[in-house]
Amino acid sequence: MSEHDKTHFFDKPDNVRLVLRVFYGLCALLLLGDFVIHRHVYHSWERLWGFYPLFGFVACVLLVLIAKEMRKLLMRDEDYYEKEAGKDAD
């Protein structure tokens, strides 16, 4: 059996599902932590229930969606700078 044919951990969809389920479980536990743990609050926004989970999620979704839009403006070919240089050398 060659190296290529060997099945690895994440090749099985069941394993991927298991990892994701554990991850979702941990997320839920952390969210419930807001009820249990009394935190010292410095910023008024921190008082909102679930501030950090919400902030983390929304921040990252915004980050990725804005970055995706930036591609329309900023993205060029891989050899954008070299291409012109080559042309000038002629």
């Binding site: 994701l20 991850f23 979702y24 941990l26 997320c27 952390l30 969210l31 932590g33 807001d34 743990i37 935190r39 921190e46 679930g50 950090y52 989970p53 919400l54 902030f55 983390g56 999620f57 929304v58 921040a59 990252c60 979704v61 990725v64």
Partner: peptide, 16 residues
């Protein structure tokens, strides 16, 4: 707690 919540839900955003 705050840091773990921030990080896990950032990861959740990536997964989603």
């Amino acid at each position: 707690l705050a840091q773990l919540q921030l990080l896990f839900f950032s990861a959740a955003a990536f997964v989603w």
